[in-house]
Amino acid sequence: MSTDNQPTAADETEGELEPEAEIDPAELQALRERVDELEESVAESDAADDGKKMTIVATQGTFDMAYPPLILGSTAAAFGWDVVVFHTFWGLDILHEENSKNLKLSAVGNPNMPVPNAIAAIPGMDRMATRMMEKRIDENGTATIEELIELSLESGVDLQACQMTIELMDYDEENFYDGVTTGVGAATALQHMAESDIQLLV
């Protein structure tokens, strides 16, 4: 049945097309312009996609754990990437102007410490371990946490402070460095993560 119908259908289509074969030059010109326009906009959107996106979730507030998100974030910004670092729970202390200057290295449960846990648990050991690390950082020319935060903000990294944790810790917006984004939650973080090429949890 279908084989009988096919030639007829084809004939009909051909018959319909033929009168339209003469294209109006003005219409053709308009179409060409439209194609050029579309090609341009595709090229533009390709260029815009060139910049990568990265989202880091910073959950830890120890001295050593504050470094990786700050170093990666500021470096990614140097690449021209769109970077969000979402700070939640103890990670919030990195953005806290006062607390960020007193972040501690944990001596207990840290297998890299040259002392056994029993000794590491003695009061004051965390402070000692932190001071030793700070000294090494200074000697090595490694940036301080404060310097990295300022550098990150300067270079356009969006440092976000989780609103829920701000309230949980009883912090205030004024406690944070100028330029820190507050009033954001998991949905904001997820939205940026979904658009990101790189997502990291620290």
Binding site: I71, S74, T75, A77, N140, A143, L148, S155
Partner: peptide, 14 residues
């Protein structure tokens, strides 16, 4: 000179 990662990169970009 005397500065370490990520400073050489970030400063170069600036």
């Amino acid at each position: 000179k005397g500065q370490s990662c990520p400073m050489p990169i970030v400063k170069t970009k600036q």
